[in-house]
Amino acid sequence: MNSIRQVPSRMKSKMSETSLGEERDRFEKQQLSSISKAINSTETPVKEKHARRIILGTHREKGAYTFWSYAIGLPLSSNAILSWKFCHVLHKVLRDGHPNTLQDCMRHYSNIAETGTLWGNLRDKYGYGQLVSLYTKLLCSKLAFHTTHPEIRANLEATDEVLERTAGTDINNVFQLTVEVFDYMDTELRLAESVLRQLNTSIAISTLTSGQCKLAPLIQVIQDCSHLYHYTVKLLFKLHACLPADTLQGHRERFHDQFHRQVD
């Protein structure tokens, strides 16, 4: 009776490597397809299914290496709408991607900032240039804040205990953290205000794909602001328990200003 020969371990290893290589190729092609469909020069909002695949890709590889390997080659300096949609996707990736996405994106901080500087000095007929400039400032603020305070995730969903630990017991640190949160909130509100000002809050314009393209990122802005507002309330209570009221007059004025800008 003939016995079944076992596959040599060396051959098994080669077969496994081939399988992994093919799987990696499929993954990269799928990511490239999703990125090219999500980030383009067509004035339409980013489709959720394409952004979701990019986000899932960061969880699969535990980072944003593949995303950036393709994103770095996008012609951001040639088209403001493409740059706007890039910012929108990056905002989503930072909020909902794998935690390692933050450090991968931080490596490209200068590229993001340079894109904003470029479009801040240019004018395009659709008004996206100025919006891209503001959006990149928001993204750079997000990157800087969460790199400085890694215990607070980029989706800003931190418990009161995490915020308490981040603030610490030194009142000077609490004071500084409050300023940083105010600054972070300002970048969010400036972007939202500029988008709404351009659209002039017209219902007719907001129902067009061009209007939706500009409005779509405000979902992430609202999500960010809701958490930042909660942080400022908690931190201000902590500060007022330790410092004289007149010392915090500037903080209260900033809080009132940001509160009214959110509800107006």
Rank of each mutant, 00 (worst) to 15 (best):
S3M: 12
Q6N: 13
P8A: 07
P8F: 00
R10Q: 15
R10G: 01
R10D: 12
M11R: 15
K14S: 13
M15H: 10
T18L: 14
E22L: 12
E23H: 08
R24Q: 13
Q30T: 05
Q30Y: 01
L32N: 13
S33K: 12
S36D: 06
A38P: 09
I39W: 02
T42V: 13
T42W: 02
E43M: 10
T44N: 11
V46D: 14
K47I: 04
E48Y: 12
A51I: 07
R52C: 05
R52G: 00
R52M: 08
R52K: 15
I54A: 03
L56W: 13
T58N: 07
G63L: 12
G63E: 07
T66R: 04
F67R: 06
S69T: 10
A71F: 10
A71H: 00
A71L: 04
A71N: 06
I72E: 04
I72K: 15
G73I: 00
G73Y: 09
L74W: 00
L74N: 08
P75A: 01
S77F: 10
L82E: 11
W84N: 08
K85I: 03
C87H: 01
K92S: 14
V93S: 08
L94K: 08
H98P: 06
T101F: 05
T101S: 15
Q103N: 12
Q103V: 15
Q103P: 01
D104N: 15
C105P: 06
C105H: 00
M106N: 11
M106R: 09
H108K: 03
I112Q: 10
A113P: 02
E114F: 04
T115P: 08
T117E: 04
T117K: 14
G120N: 03
L122N: 07
R123L: 01
Y128H: 07
G129E: 01
Q130A: 06
S133Y: 06
L134I: 11
K137A: 10
K137W: 04
K142G: 11
H146K: 10
H146C: 15
H149Q: 12
H149Y: 15
H149P: 07
H149T: 08
A154P: 05
N155G: 05
L156I: 03
E157N: 13
L163E: 14
E164V: 03
G168E: 02
D170L: 03
D170C: 06
N172V: 08
N173K: 11
N173H: 10
N173W: 02
L177Q: 02
T178C: 13
E180W: 03
V181K: 11
F182P: 00
D183M: 05
D183W: 08
Y184C: 00
M185I: 04
E188P: 01
L189Q: 15
R190D: 12
A192C: 07
S194Y: 02
L196V: 05
R197D: 14
L199T: 10
L199N: 09
N200A: 14
L208Y: 06
K214I: 02
L215D: 05
P217H: 08
Q220F: 12
I222F: 09
I222N: 11
Q223T: 09
S226Y: 09
S226C: 09
H230G: 09
T232L: 14
K234I: 14
L235E: 00
L236G: 06
L236Q: 10
K238W: 02
L243E: 02
L243Y: 00
L243C: 09
P244Y: 02
A245Y: 11
A245S: 11
L248N: 07
R252H: 06
Q258F: 09
Q258C: 05
R261M: 05
V263H: 10
V263M: 03
